Computed example of a mutant assay.
Amino acid sequence: MAQTESTVHVRPYNPDMDYDVVVRVFRETIGDNLHFEPAHTLSTYAWCRPYLLLSPSTCFVLSSSSSDGTSCSPGEPVGFILGTPSTMTFAQRWRISFLASVDRMVCPEPAIPDGDERGWDLNWDDDPVGTLQRVIWGPERYPAHLHIDILPAYQRKGCGGQLMTVFLQKVKEEGASGCHIIMPASNIDARRFYGRHGFRMYEKSMNDGGSGEPGILKDGSVCLVREL
């Protein structure tokens, strides 16, 4: 059956209507390397739920006006951009407010290795679940200013650009002078997308010099930055 032609638009996130759907879209679009439990669920606590709860005013959804064969009904989010204008404030709210809501049965607080007071030795390949737990319990070391996901049916149609434009304007209005993204170096398509929107590789050494290369973290992720 042919898909119904639909129109999409960007609108502010509505906490009363969109929370569960945004989490569902996030789960449907997360990388294949995290498509197993408990990593699949832990991912939502690292890169989705805290933004919706702590910074809803800087979250936006891509809404479809008609049904088109996706799992979303007309008017429901088919994509989103989540973020915060202040990483430091966001991290403080995370520790004070968000961690109190985390179910320790779902995400137990990780043990801190001897000699490492934060336990921040990211190891996605060998221990993705443990790494996600450290992301959740230590956001100040890995709080991407934004996270963007779009269902496959709406990708490569300019929707990401619409979301990015609205988000960057909003955080600028709230006082942000710049924005950064931390992402896997292997995601070339995403890096090109961010490049088209003014992001570039961070020029300084990351992770206290752990990587030895400008803009590259110890785990191989890259940091992209953009002035506002």
Rank of each mutant, 00 (worst) to 15 (best):
G158T: 02
S63W: 04
I181V: 15
R156S: 08
A176C: 02
L62T: 10
L151P: 09
A46E: 07
Y142W: 15
D32A: 13
R156H: 08
T7R: 03
D20N: 08
S221P: 08
G212M: 08
H197S: 13
G138H: 10
R134F: 00
P139F: 06
G69E: 01
E174H: 02
S71F: 08
V25K: 04
G161Y: 07
H180W: 15
S6I: 00
D16F: 03
P38F: 02
M1A: 14
S101K: 00
K170V: 06
G31I: 10
R196P: 10
Q133E: 04
H35G: 06
P113H: 06
G160H: 10
L163A: 01
M1N: 12
R118S: 12
S205K: 14
A190C: 13
R134I: 04
L122C: 11
E203F: 11
A111V: 13
P214I: 04
G79I: 08
A185P: 09
P77R: 07
A100M: 02
R11Y: 00
T29S: 07
G130L: 02
H197N: 15
S73K: 06
L146S: 11
H9N: 03
T84N: 07
A185C: 11
E37N: 02
D149S: 10
A39D: 03
Y51E: 05
N207S: 14
K170W: 03
L122S: 10
L62W: 12
